[in-house]
Design a protein around this nucleic acid. Sequence first.
DNA 1: GGCTTATCTTGCCACTGTCAAGATAAAATT
DNA 2: AATTTTATCTTGACAGTGGCAAGATAAGCC
Lengths: 212, 212
Amino acid sequence: MNASKYHHGDLKRALLDAAEELLEEVGLQGFTLRACARRAGVSHAAPKHHFGDARGLLSAVAERGFGRLADALAAAIHPVKGDLVAEIQATCQSYVGFAENHPEHFRIMFRDDLICIDREHPPEPVARTFMELTNVILRQRGEPELKFSPYDPDRSDAVINDIILGWCYIHGYAHLRLEGQLTMIPENTHLAQMNLAAERLSNLLSAGHNAE
Amino acid sequence: MNASKYHHGDLKRALLDAAEELLEEVGLQGFTLRACARRAGVSHAAPKHHFGDARGLLSAVAERGFGRLADALAAAIHPVKGDLVAEIQATCQSYVGFAENHPEHFRIMFRDDLICIDREHPPEPVARTFMELTNVILRQRGEPELKFSPYDPDRSDAVINDIILGWCYIHGYAHLRLEGQLTMIPENTHLAQMNLAAERLSNLLSAGHNAE
DNA sequence: GGCTTATCTTGCCACTGTCAAGATAAAATT
DNA sequence: AATTTTATCTTGACAGTGGCAAGATAAGCC
């Protein structure tokens, strides 16, 4: 709490907070280890003990981002659970909205050259994000959803193909839009277009499965 | 030609070549303006006159990348033109293959925070890339393809929705795969999965249009 | 108390992007 | 052909960076 203390007490969290603030204010370009340290009120070499190097700090930032994305997805899907079309639309809006509201965060999360994520044993927030996305697809197929561990090696090819179609479309939309490539979409029709595409996607994924 | 000349003669091209070589060898992290200048055999401030700053050089690199992507797409699509499913599959393979073979190039091309592209009047390579992608979709719909200028403000919402579905899926697949996120796909089934998804996409896009 | 360990600081190094000023050569003008 | 103008490249400097090594401080533990 006290800034005069030699030992900060919660420097790791303070550095992460500072990093996120900096990313929002000046972007990834202006983001530096030293600026993070300054903002947290410590010396320029203080981050080393907690994060090793810049890659370590950014990896931790990315992990936080995945946690927030997973939260946003869960919150958006929950109110419409059961309505297959609305679920995909909510997932799209949430995912794309996250990229729009936290562009720098989103960029870092998908920068394999910048950060370091253990793919064998992914951090909990990463696994949770993927679980939310997978469960949306599973419900489209009328299959029981997962409670944990979305990385099931025995998943059938058909399920994987549905996951690919769903996630890749959503991510592609979010990424291309974030990087300014979807200029052919008039801004006032953007939401309608996204919802329409989501509906078509839902129809494709649920075809033949929800014959109840 | 002669390294002893004060005036290089073709420094702009030489710097771009050096930049691409550096990106391949050391990646975006190790890439610096000064390293480019060293490799081109000129002083550290020489790039300024041709590209202004680092952003200018990277933008030129990205433009080159779009040119190569457009070439690759055209070359991949041409042999199978007319076969709707094969066209989408070839487009996928070409796009994803480009990201795999030129990862750093691909990353820079879709970094709106790093480069600077005039969206009102896109450079020829950018427009050409988008034209190749748009034409694939138009042929799926049984509509005449474009010869130039894919940025048509009078395009109908239905066409735009098809473009979105197609391009976003393809780009999402390429990007997520490049950034190591598609770990649920066993590597030996990757191509089959991509082709299957492409076939399903083709069926969706061409439904009701190719009733010949 | 004394010892160990975790945490943070200080000082340093090579390196970076950018700028300003100057040097050189090519092109344009007369 | 001589001179002026312009384009191109070099040199030198500056503040800022990441990372390392060594030291300072404090907390925990016996």
